[in-house]
C-alpha cells in the first residue's frame, strides 16, 4: 500500500506543477504583457481559469495531507528548516487567491481593480519562485539537522544559488505552460498570435534558466549531473524533453494548440521524472547524506492502508468530476457563451 500512497504523492506534485503551475503562469503572462493588451489577456484568462483555479490548487493540499499523514517526519523536518520560504509561499498563495476572486467579484469597478491586479501579478510571480526555492532546497542537501545557530539552521538551508536557480526555472516553466494553454483558449487570431510569441519567449527563458540550474548545481556541489547521467530513465527523460523542443517550436509556429499543450505537459513531466527518479526513495536531502527516505520514514502500516484506500476511493469521486469540469469549460464545449 505504501507504493499506492507514494504514487498519489507523485501524482499530486505533478498535477500541481502542471495545473497549478499553468494557473500561476497566467499571472506571469499578464505581468509580462504590454499595458495595452493586458485587458484582453485578463479576459481570456478569466474565462479559462475562473472555473478551475480553485480545483487546481487542491493538488497542493492533497500533497501536503499525504506528507503529514503518511510521512510525518519528512513534513516536520521541512516545516522546521524551510519555515521562512514556506511562510513566503503561503503569503503568495493567500494574496493571489483573494486578489483573483476580489477583482472579479467586486460589485463596483473602480481604481481598486488596479490594486487587485498588482497584487495578483506580483504574487503570481513570487509564489512559484518560492515553490521552486523550496523544491530546490529539498534536493540540494543543505539542510543541516545538527545546526546550532540561526543562520545555518533556518537561512542557509534554503538560500543558495541552486534553490534560486530552480526558483526562476519554475517561474519560467509556469509562464510557458500558461502561454501554451492560453493559445488554445484565445478566441481571436491576434490574441492567439500574441500567446504563441509569449510561449516561445517563455520557453527560451526556461531553457536558459535550466542551464543556470546545472551551473548552480556544480557551484553548490549538488549531484544533479550524477543523478541524471547515472540513471537510464533520467537520461532518457532529459533527452526526450530536449528533442521534443524542436517539435514544440514547429507545432507552435503552426498554431497547433492541442498538440502543443500535450507536448508541454509531457516536457514538464519528463523534467520532474528526471530529477525525481534517480534518488528514489530518498525524498528530502540533508547534509551528511542521512537523507530522509519515503520508505524508511513512512507512517505505521495501519495508517498507510487507510490513507491508500482513502486516496483510491477519493479519486473515484474526484477524477470523473474534474474531467467533466475541464471538458465543460473548454472553448469548444457545447453551450459556451461569449
Amino acid at each position: 500500500m505504501e507504493y499506492v500512497v507514494i504514487a498519489y504523492l507523485c501524482l499530486a506534485i505533478l498535477l500541481y506543477f502542471l495545473l497549478g503551475g499553468a494557473d500561476f503562469g497566467a499571472g506571469i503572462v499578464e505581468l509580462f504583457t504590454s499595458r495595452k493588451n493586458r485587458n484582453r489577456t485578463r479576459e481570456t484568462m478569466h474565462h479559462t481559469i475562473g472555473p478551475v483555479w480553485e480545483a487546481n490548487h487542491m493538488w497542493l493540499i492533497i500533497a501536503i495531507v499525504i506528507l503529514f499523514v503518511g510521512f510525518p517526519r519528512i513534513y516536520s523536518v521541512m516545516s522546521v528548516y524551510l519555515h521562512i520560504p514556506l511562510v513566503v509561499l503561503l503569503l503568495g498563495i493567500i494574496a493571489r487567491g483573494t486578489a483573483f476572486v476580489f477583482r472579479h467579484y467586486d460589485a463596483v469597478v473602480d481604481d481598486m481593480q488596479i490594486l487587485y491586479n498588482r497584487i495578483f501579478v506580483y504574487s503570481s510571480f513570487v509564489t512559484p519562485l518560492f515553490l521552486g526555492i523550496i523544491a530546490g532546497s529539498v534536493l540540494a542537501g543543505k539542510i543541516d539537522l545538527q545546526a546550532q545557530d540561526f543562520m545555518s539552521a533556518y537561512i542557509y538551508s534554503w538560500l543558495h544559488y541552486f534553490s534560486i536557480a530552480v526558483g526562476f526555472f519554475t517561474v519560467a516553466l509556469c509562464g510557458f505552460l500558461a502561454a501554451v494553454y492560453l493559445v488554445g483558449e484565445a478566441t481571436e487570431r491576434r490574441d492567439k498570435d500574441r500567446f504563441i510569441r509569449k510561449a516561445i519567449s517563455m520557453n527560451v527563458a526556461a531553457v536558459i534558466c535550466g542551464a543556470l540550474v546545472f551551473l548552480a548545481a556544480s557551484i553548490e556541489d549538488v549531484p544533479l549531473v550524477q543523478w541524471i547521467f547515472g540513471s537510464v530513465i533520467s537520461l532518457t527523460a532529459v533527452i526526450a524533453a530536449t528533442l521534443s523542443l524542436v517539435l514544440l517550436w514547429y507545432w507552435l509556429s503552426q498554431g497547433k494548440a492541442k498538440k502543443v499543450r500535450v507536448l508541454a505537459g509531457f516536457q514538464v513531466t519528463m523534467i520532474l521524472l528526471a530529477v525525481g527518479y534517480p534518488h528514489f526513495p530518498d525524498f528530502l536531502m540533508v547534509q551528511g547524506g542521512q537523507n530522509l527516505s519515503l520508505l524508511q520514514h513512512q507512517a505505521p502500516v495501519g495508517t498507510m492502508v487507510a490513507l491508500g484506500w482513502a486516496l483510491l476511493l477519493g479519486s473515484l469521486l474526484i477524477l470523473p468530476a474534474l474531467f467533466y469540469l475541464f471538458y465543460s469549460f473548454q472553448k469548444k464545449a457545447p453551450g459556451y457563451l461569449h
Binding site: 495531507v65 482513502a310 486516496l311 477519493g314 469521486l317
Partner: peptide, 14 residues
C-alpha cells in the same frame, strides 16, 4: 499525531 488523526484530513481533502 499526523499518522493517527490524519484520516479525517485525508477524507476532508477529498
Amino acid at each position: 499525531a499526523g499518522p493517527v488523526f490524519g484520516m479525517p484530513f485525508s477524507l476532508e481533502g477529498t
